[in-house]
Design a protein around this nucleic acid. Structure first.
Lengths: 156, 156
DNA sequence: TGCTAAATGCAAGTTAGTTGCAACAAGTAG
DNA sequence: CTACTTGTTGCAACTAACTTGCATTTAGCA
């Protein structure tokens, strides 16, 4: 039984995903590997539903439950693998945290097209906020989202 | 019947709210006046539920339906009276648009305390985004939210 | 004063996300 | 290699936020 529960050979990609999970102290399971792989291959933030839709349906394997996806997203968030972003789509989106890659988003309010922005410029604002506020002590996170129209939608 | 449907005297506040609605092309109704008044008196963004909770319960008058609140928020938003803000509370918040008063928010991720920020500093980012993006044509809106801990919560 | 379009109330439905609990499986100790 | 323990998953039911359809009412205006 060489291919009953474990693949005969593990691809380098699979190995990378596995160690990424292990490093975060998360057990390596099939659902988690699948979800992580989807994020790795995605160019934009994903909602829980998009993750669900992107899950491969292998006839031989049982489908992954919707609840499990929420719980995986939660565990990934807690362990710092992904972050929540709010793109005003009426639900939460998630994206991998690549520590070398701090960015924000620009969203088309008509079609939902999303691009990353690689400049930021709020560090001054953060400093000023802490300095001027009597109530706040620290700023750990921030979101900057631009909302506009893409070239396609502005023509409609 | 002097006090059956209309008050004998209209307060200056009532008059102001009335004309504000009229200017926006909205019919002046009791539910709308109540909701607008709540926003006028609030120092922070409000959710639909908070608006509902803040509605006065005058025994003589029928209560205002929850659905109506959503519809009022929608009409206020469409006519530019209020704006949506996303403070990661799992629902949408709304605040009056005061055109002289462009601001953003700083939110405590533990207790939800919210303050306004009166500096912004993203105009450079917006210009750069339009210039560098092949896909985007205009930026009409933006959100900047800082998330951190207030002095109370950081001690816990 | 009466008309008409807009606003409201009510009931039911939808969507996103959560909770409790039993079954299962990853990692580890023996 | 096997057995144990704890974290993970699946299922079903539930909640919160918000929406829709339709009948009724009412603001604004002729």
């Amino acid at each position: 039984m060489s291919n009953s529960s474990k693949p005969a050979t593990a691809s380098p990609e699979q190995l990378e995903l596995t160690s990424l999970l292990a490093e975060c102290g998360l057990k390596v399971t099939r659902p988690r590997l699948s979800v992580l792989k989807i994020f790795k291959n995605s160019t934009h933030p994903l909602s829980a539903q998009e993750v669900a839709a992107a899950l491969p349906t292998v006839p031989a394997l049982p489908a992954i439950n919707g609840v499990t996806i929420y719980r995986i997203l939660d565990s990934f968030k807690t362990s710092g693998l992904i972050r929540e972003v709010n793109l005003r789509h009426g639900h939460l989106d998630y994206e991998l945290i690549d520590h070398a890659d701090h960015h924000h988003h620009i969203v088309c309010t008509k079609c939902g097209l999303t691009e990353d922005l690689y400049s930021c410029g709020v560090s001054g604002l953060i400093k000023a906020a802490i300095k001027n506020s009597r109530n706040f002590a620290t700023v750990n996170e921030h979101s900057v989202e631009l909302f506009g129209l893409c070239r396609k939608c502005i023509k409609l």
